[in-house]
Amino acid sequence: MAEAIRVEGLHKRYATVHALRGVDLAVARGEFFGLLGPNGAGKTTLIGILAGLVRPTAGRAAVMGHDVRRRWRQARRALGLVPQELVYDPFFTVREILWLQSGYFGLGRANRAWIEELLEVLNLTAKADANLHDLSGGMKRRVLIAQALVHRPPVVVLDEPTAGVDVELRQALWHFTRRLHAEGHTIVLTTHYLEEAEALCGRIAILHQGMLRALDTKAGLLARHPWRCLCLELDPPGAPLPEAVAALVSEREGGRVKLRLHRLNDQIGAVLDALRTAGLRIRDLRTEEPGLEEVFLELVHEAPAGEAAAAEREAG
């Protein structure tokens, strides 16, 4: 069975920007997939290619096994896109817009029951006959979601659906996308909020400057980050640290010391031994695992975090 999404050697050059520089990616059916990256990373461009809005400069893309260029009708029927911008047609009411969108996909009156269901589920029934003009931003966002779902696409792509929305709507959107996922839809969510990807997504791809920097499960990404913190409370508080340990300090406040350890090169046992040999007592000990934030920053910043930390140490 074909994957929900497959992308091979994808390049996109705009007039002056090389927005995608050879992206390879596959999303299996039923995944909740996160596409993470800072502004300008190329997320919207990648999604645009899947939806047929952007023409790739090189490479291929397919939705549910349908090439987006050669089998564009099938590919478009398989995809529901919730665009990043709050765009709408000011001439029509919510219900009219959904009827029209359904008609574009070749669906007739038989689909109207589904449209009513969508209005219901997305809490839009009360506003169904209102013009899009008169709806709040949150309502417009929900209309966009309904529009993406009128043709019951197996793959739903949401482009930064929670950018700039209030907490309540964000919770509602999370709930709704989880529900879609549970119903069997493949979900691709782009975001630049790490907590969102952490909370929702099974696998996460990190895109930066048009290149895929990482693609793994949340746990896999975290494991890849080689740093962890060892937080100690030492006695006596002001005593000098042995040289080997002093080199690892990232923060120190009296007896509280935070050490940054490399998973492979720095062993906790050796650190503790060195402290004991120097005559220091360890009153408390705790380790901190990194969040996706650290992983993300490390992948995205030019200088690897280790070097940056080393530079800081030298400067300080």
């Binding site: 939806a51 047929g52 809005l53 564009w72 009708r73 099938q74 478009r76 029927r77 995809l79 896109l81 665009p83 765009v87 709408y88 047609d89 969108q101 574009y104 996909f105 070749g106 529009q147």
Partner: peptide, 9 residues
């Protein structure tokens, strides 16, 4: 809003 047309088959 032209995109709604462009994503349609």
């Amino acid at each position: 809003n032209l995109i709604f047309l462009l994503v349609a088959p």
